[in-house]
Nucleic acid binder design. Structure first.
Lengths: 215, 215
DNA sequence: ACCTGAACACCGTTCAAGT
DNA sequence: ACCTGAACACCGTTCAAGT
């Protein structure tokens, strides 16, 4: 729609696009104002006119990425299955945008990552029979669990392989009684499986019986 | 024990102590090699001789702080109560060292925060009757849940109060059906209560019946 | 309204030179 | 063995000056 020849002036849109590209390639710490200017072929100071400063540039990128995340559609027959499916979808979406997670953490905006699944979760939790504050707690518990899990996962991934001393721990009493446990803990973690296990347990605990309103 | 007059030479110990003090006061991002040198009254380059570089300095601080965390003693009568108590102790310990959390995340060493509670959790989960890979999964699920929760909490705390647009979400269908839910979600989160709720649900789901070995 | 270069106040790190 | 200053290659941001 917009002829390429008319780009006489730099544009907020162009700045955001170039910034997005930089972040996509090398993560948010590679997004420096000077590299960005070089990429755009302008003076560093021009960028400041369009986006204020680095902080608000990152904010804009976060907002944009969150808006692009796409909807979440629950699957499954029971409410429990459907909430679990929402959790897994949210995790998958966040993992598909690893730079979002990094940016959000650098900027302290974790809340933003809660949004995509929120309405759906409210609906499903309501369908499961939870009401009022109890329902709100359940929604938040699932959200924090998913986002927290993704943060830990991402962190583990960029850590060097080193986990020295872990094995020594399993030479203790308990491990001798249960060598299978010792071996299982020595093996590397399968994050996908661990997530499924924990989220199933959490949701079952949140929605299951024995959790009726405190009478 | 060590006379103060004999400090002719700078010391790795002194560097670590000064670095710890700096981090304690203003967080890890305030720990710059130059400020550290100024604090110690030496040239910046001397520090490099003792600790290599900033990265390994942070690693050393992390290691030291983790070692100082102190033991965790479960309380309660049922295995479920005891695992929950371990989770809450671990969370409290991590929250008492907010800079550890920040440093660990900056350095990608989240694993380190798993250690303090690990043996205790293994023991309690074993006492609850879980064995082998199933027990290992339970231990890890609790660890990730706690650490993830603390990461999200810390993030929320350093974020500005802004959560714009949240309220609009609750004007939807579901909220109209359940005004108490809408109000609950509009209220600020009580992290302590939310943690307790979620960890109880998780542990109950992990240890509860209906989770017997897949027959 | 938008762009520019110069300048300020910072960084981490290396290295040759000192004792 | 330990310390030093100078230097390199970076940062984000401000500001006066241009068109």
């Amino acid at each position: 729609m917009k002829s390429e020849e008319t780009r006489t002036h730099l544009n907020r849109e162009q700045v955001l696009a170039a910034a997005t590209a930089l972040v996509k390639q090398h993560g948010p710490q590679a997004l420096t104002m000077r590299k960005l200017a070089a990429e755009l072929g302008t003076a560093v100071t021009s960028i400041y006119w369009h986006v204020g400063n680095r902080e608000s540039l990152l904010d804009a990128l976060v907002e944009r990425t969150v808006a692009d995340l796409g909807e979440i559609h629950p699957t499954g027959h029971t409410p429990e299955q459907r909430v679990v499916s929402v959790a897994r979808s949210l995790r998958r979406q966040l993992r598909e945008h690893p730079h979002l997670v990094a940016m959000v953490h650098e900027r302290g905006l974790t809340e933003r990552m809660f949004l995509p699944a929120q309405q759906v979760l409210v609906h499903e939790v309501h369908a499961a029979g939870l009401r009022g504050a109890r329902a709100a707690d359940a929604v938040r518990a699932v959200q924090v669990h998913v986002v927290g899990h993704v943060l830990v996962e991402r962190n583990r991934e960029r850590a060097p392989v080193q986990r020295p001393g872990e094995e020594e721990l399993w030479s203790g009493r308990t491990a001798e009684q249960d060598p299978a446990l010792a071996r299982a803990l020595a093996r590397p973690v399968d994050p996908e499986a661990l997530f499924t296990t924990s989220v199933r347990a959490l949701v079952s605990g949140l929605l299951g019986r024995g959790n009726g309103p405190g009478t």
